[in-house]
Design a binder for these strands. Structure first.
Length: 418
RNA sequence: CGGGGCGUAGUAUAUCGGUAGUAUACAUGUUUUGGGAACAUGAGGGCCGAGUUCGAUUCUCGGCGCCCCGACCA
């Protein structure tokens, strides 16, 4: 994309009403725009990142057999009444509204209820199980206090996977598969080294649920990390009994602030029972389906990546989620620079290498450098009189301080889509 | 929801009970071009409502909105 055509502009000043690093950098870079507290628009650059994250998550969900579908945001309250989660006294963060023709509806805070009800129509026999479905969906939660930029909004994008198994053993095996898939996701997104499987409160069907917590001062949770075991314990379940059960020594634990970037639950029959999702087993007996749910906040992940991977000049996107792979900077408005940079951009485009081309005229070199650092695209290629004189293009990684001059062939080799 | 802070050009800020200033961004022109260039010119502003006052952006009250700490986060 040509940067001269991009309607967003970078800002030198941090917004006065945003303290969090993710909101500041994403706003200054033109990735997001705040509409209200806890409600953000995703602008072209931001949407590209969101979609990159989505695609990584989608690939890993498909790899564990997830079938993608898409459910509505509007919820049928009668279904939620069956699980006793419609009453404001029980769940207080609904956005509810009235249907003009009569009746009440709400914007989905999660989707266990409608999905379980939906599946009751498709599952009859043990032969139909197990399976898992997932979706990317906007969730609405009427939080008392939105905060931390896109990390805790009232409207946010979430991937939710639900598994349907015949029994607990079958469920447990799948649960471990998903846990492994989640680890892969965080590794691919460049935050694996900071992300720990964390034991958290579990509910009635399992002693624990598992959270994925990324170490960051921006986090809302306090966890205790056992580096040698590669696990952590959420403060909410931290006590001597739990430590003993997990075989963890108190002296090895380090207290950390962390962001919850994922959570997987054993639901058991909590939803299948009231919503009558059951199957007939081999002996002709009715059995409730054994369920699990697995969430990842996609937009929160984007904020977390910014919090964790940035420096004082801007964002440092991992290759897997960067809005573009390479940022071409044309310095100087001379004919030879413009021609060379444009040819390079065309070549990248032809080869499927995603490039943002800073073709803006009358913008100083310093400003282009500062913008490139802020926007944080992994590779920066400078085309200037100097680079041409030196024999080609100056390529520099955002994560490194020094660049080097390379030929066009070397550049294409370096950036080619493997 | 409890506590605290704040609301002035697109953005970031200053001042003042009496003509609202600066930076940046924007427009035009000239000169510039490897780390947010220079000069000149131009356009652009007091969240809403009520009260006090000769006069309110400023003081008072109410509303709306934003941020932070805490509580909450099924």
């Amino acid at each position: 994309m040509r940067q001269s055509k991009l309607f967003t502009k970078t800002k030198k000043e941090a917004p006065a009403d945003e303290i969090s690093k993710n909101a500041e950098l994403l706003t200054r870079g033109g990735f997001i725009h705040k509409e209200m507290a806890g409600v953000y628009s995703y602008l072209p650059l931001g949407l590209r990142v969101l979609e990159k994250i989505t695609e990584v998550v989608r690939e890993e969900m498909n790899a564990v057999g997830g079938q993608e579908l898409h459910m509505p945001a509007l919820q049928d309250k009668t279904i939620w009444e069956k699980t006793d989660r419609w009453d404001d006294a029980k769940v207080d963060n609904w956005f509810k509204t009235h249907i003009k023709a009569g009746g009440e509806t709400g914007l989905g805070i999660t989707h266990e209820e409608p999905l379980t009800a939906l599946m009751a129509e498709y599952v009859q026999s043990y032969k139909d199980l197990p399976f898992a479905v997932y979706q990317f969906q906007t969730k609405f939660r009427n939080e008392m206090r939105a905060k931390s930029g896109i990390m805790r909004g009232r409207e946010f994008l979430m991937k939710d996977l639900y598994s349907f198994s015949k029994n607990k053993d079958e469920h447990d095996a799948y649960y471990e598969e998903v846990k492994a898939a989640y680890k892969k996701i965080y590794n691919r997104l460049g935050i694996g080294h900071l992300t720990y499987v964390t034991f958290a409160s579990g509910g009635i069907f399992a002693p624990f649920s598992h959270e994925f917590q990324t170490i960051s001062p921006a986090g809302e949770d306090t966890i205790y990390v056992d580096e040698s075991k590669g696990i952590a314990i959420n403060k909410e379940v931290y006590n001597d009994q739990v430590l003993a059960d997990l075989g963890v020594e108190k002296s090895k634990l380090v207290e950390q602030r962390a962001v919850e970037v994922g959570n997987i639950f054993t639901l058991g029959t909590r939803f299948s029972e009231p919503l009558e999702l059951a199957y007939t087993d081999e002996e002709g007996k009715r059995q409730n389906v054994f369920m699990g749910s697995y969430g990842i906040g996609v937009s929160r992940l984007m904020g977390t990546i910014v919090e964790v991977l940035s420096d004082d000049r801007g964002i440092i996107w991992p290759d897997s989620v960067a809005p573009f792979k390479v940022h071409i900077l044309g310095l100087g408005d001379t004919e030879v620079v413009t021609r060379t940079a444009t040819e390079l951009y065309n070549e990248f485009t032809a080869q499927g290498i995603e490039a943002l081309y800073d073709d803006r005229q009358e913008v100083s070199a310093g400003e282009k450098f500062a913008d490139a650092d802020l926007v944080g695209i992994p590779f920066r290629v400078v085309v200037s009189e100097r680079s041409i004189k030196d024999g080609g293009y100056e390529v520099k990684k955002r994560s490194e301080e020094k660049g080097k001059i390379v030929s066009r062939a070397e550049l294409l080799e370096l950036l080619s889509v493997k």
